[in-house]
Amino acid sequence: MSSISIPNRRNAAARPPPVPSSGVSFVLPALLLILAVFILPVVMLLLRSVTEPDPGLQNYRELFESATVARVFVNTFVVSGLVTAIALLIGFPIAWLLVILPKRWADLLFGIVILSMWTNLLARTYAWMVLLQRTGIINKTLMGLGLIDTPLPLVNNLVGVTIGMTYIMLPFIVLPLVTTMRAIEPDLLRAAALCGAGRWEAFRRVLLPLSLPGIAAGGLLTFVMSLGYFVTPSLLGGAGNMMAAELIAQLVQSLLNWGLGGATAFALLVLTLALYAVQLRLLQRGRSQRGG
């Protein structure tokens, strides 16, 4: 782990020999492809945001002055944060079950989690529309039980978006967590129990801290994916509370405002990268504290 690599870093002699450069020519086509399909469009987008309709930063001025854009960004970050938090709360116990259940039951549960990823995204989102609408199963059941008098507004708003996206993001939380948890020695929890730790203490002091790398990886993945998510917000969300990807689509497709659309997309990219950098810093600091 990190503790092993740290002394190596100080000791230059222990470094592995540099990779021979002769292999570069083999990966060159792939590198060029990545450049053409990933990097180039981003650069072009950035260029459009400062050249259309006129050269200058007016698109960014508009972006920062617009109350609508500000609200869309707030919506986006709040929903992404909620989705990540709820998916973690649901995903953690599922991941732990996958690790501790007998193999047959774990395989079944794993199948259910994975199967949801293999089903068409639109089909899954429409399924949620059916479930969540005013006359959907959820509202009908709740009213039938007499718990509510009028249907709850569960769709065409951010509640619907949060529910739908949480479900879609769940596998991206569960899979990294399972990998992390599988690496935890099962006898560690037995040792914790004999040391006097009940379930809660064992969770708080052993399982949770040891699962942190998985929580961080899954959480970041989910949060970043949620920031730019389009399908679910546009189907389950309402016109009054857009998310960033919807705003960009509207600017480009309906208003043909490539300049402002590019500026919005670029702002989202910068915010995402900034978040990623912060998390990377936190992870590294945690690691070096443990390593030191």
Binding site: E185, D187, L188, R190, A191, V206, P209, L210
Partner: peptide, 9 residues
């Protein structure tokens, strides 16, 4: 225990 079951963190 047989394997070292120290809390690694």
């Amino acid at each position: 225990f047989q394997r070292y079951t120290l809390f690694p963190h």
